[in-house]
Amino acid sequence: MFYNIGQIIMLFWRTLQALPKAWLERKKVYDQLFEIGNASLLMVCILSLFIGGVLALETGPTLVERGLSGVLGRMVGLSMCRELGPLMMAILIAGRIGSAMAAEIGSMRVYQELDALRTMNISPINYLVMPRMIAMVIALPALVVFSIPVGWLGGALVSTFNASISVPVETFFHDLREGIGVADVVHGLVKALVFAVAIGLISCHQGLVTIGGPRGIGRSVTKAVVNSIVVILILDYFVTRFLIYFQ
């Protein structure tokens, strides 16, 4: 395990070293961005709507019962933008995009395409890893920015239409505006950024070290997704701790 962590840190370092070439590889970055957006935008939408909804559903009745219906907007809003937006989007992207990256790079490894690149003096880091990392780091925060208001909307809808909550949309959003500042959105975006780096590195690394034919590719995909999710959840705690310290 420590060997893997060491290798992943090396990969991170080499990706950073490749960054000056990023502008030359911009077409590959666009392609990756397009793929990520295409594969996940609709899912992000649906997922966020339901997460916002269930947040309102779980907290709403209790708050209303205690006469605290005025803080429902900020409860749902804060949970969505500081925690559940970035976390759930990261898990979604690990499953949807991280897996695809591990599979694609893994199959290139198994079928000697990486060897062929190296004989042509084309670095797999520049050619494959760096564009994927950049796309990931742009796309995940962007998806989170998109998911937060959709989540709020989900929360507002449930608050209004659920009989045991019945908090009007205006009240919900009024409180949400009062209770949420730019710092809270930044908090969420910093998390998204950290998660993006983790997913990209773990998935690309897992692809690069794939061995053993089609089965090996399958194993790599599973590992990439499971390891990404575990690391995301652990990082989530520490990043939160770190950011709270600064507020």
Partner: peptide, 22 residues
């Protein structure tokens, strides 16, 4: 080390072809 690979033009035709499928 990739010194030789960057100083000289080398090529290898793999047994499997090893074309990039993408």
């Amino acid at each position: 080390g990739s010194e030789v690979l960057s100083k000289y033009r080398l090529a290898m035709v793999f047994q499997s072809g090893a074309l990039l499928k993408s």
